[in-house]
Design a protein around this nucleic acid. Sequence first.
DNA 1: ACTATTATAGACATTAAAGATCCATAATAG
DNA 2: CTATTATGGATCTTTAATGTCTATAATAGT
Lengths: 161, 161
Amino acid sequence: MQFSKSTDYALHALIHLGLSERSHHVGIKELSGSLGVSESYLSKIMSKLRQDGIVRAVPGVNGGYELARPAEQISFLDVIQVIEGRQQLFECSNSSSQQHQLLVEQGSAPDEQRNLARKDCLIEKVMLGAEQQMHQYMREHTIQSVLDEAVERRSHEANKK
Amino acid sequence: MQFSKSTDYALHALIHLGLSERSHHVGIKELSGSLGVSESYLSKIMSKLRQDGIVRAVPGVNGGYELARPAEQISFLDVIQVIEGRQQLFECSNSSSQQHQLLVEQGSAPDEQRNLARKDCLIEKVMLGAEQQMHQYMREHTIQSVLDEAVERRSHEANKK
DNA sequence: ACTATTATAGACATTAAAGATCCATAATAG
DNA sequence: CTATTATGGATCTTTAATGTCTATAATAGT
């Protein structure tokens, strides 16, 4: 299991837009050149980001892309969910099998067992908890926080001289 | 991005083994029947778990599988890493491109820029942090903790009557 | 209004990974 | 020695990610 390259491209593209001045449009040529990926492919990704309101796009001469809202309001989670989708990372495919019966009391009434559906899988519950830990972290980190850290790193480098 | 079905099968199989008495071997027939998956496919997964020391396997009459160590010493993280592999969820594919130059000071010496390799990508750093949040949670949850919670749930159900 | 420029959307091709099956082999209990 | 059970290799199918191409629509500048 790995995040797709599209996610990598999307995040880097947004950093690039974040570095540009406000209300300046960056064309797909500049973006794709900077990231080392084809225009065709990157424009698919940018379209997704536009459809989800992360960036704005303007066609025509001097057109291109810009962030649709301040960089501190674009979290990593926002971006990942646009590109990777919003399904759970783990879904129990097994709820109708014998397996889950074993986790319920052996002597209970049949209708109680029926009520134990997909969402009651204890394994899925753990995996969902794990995912939400990751989400929380991604929610706290934004495009702006990366830009800020880049500035910090620059001043550290400067001090070393 | 989603966890593979193999991970689902592996976790459910381990719960099944955890429910069986110690030093009792559970055959692939029983396991695959319980999970609703073919013997061939599940045995591949069980082999992986054996190679990584999660289960023991015994061929021959009355053979089968058992947990290789106590259920409280088998964490979700152990299992996920066997099945999904140990690569990072996110790896920056982009370190040699212009993108990262932008994140470094524009006027610095060329050799300092060279030193900024893959591992210095600030995006990758955030993503790695997120992954480690998830790992920590998975490390704290074990096969035994699921079995315990199943018991708890049973007594809750009993109280409702 | 015309033209060059730029994003959009759809169709399509390629590649890689997951999911699944089959068979020959090796190990074990009785 | 035999029936049983796991193992490993080869192979096939399906699905998702990756990538390209082309026709269309929108825009700025003239």
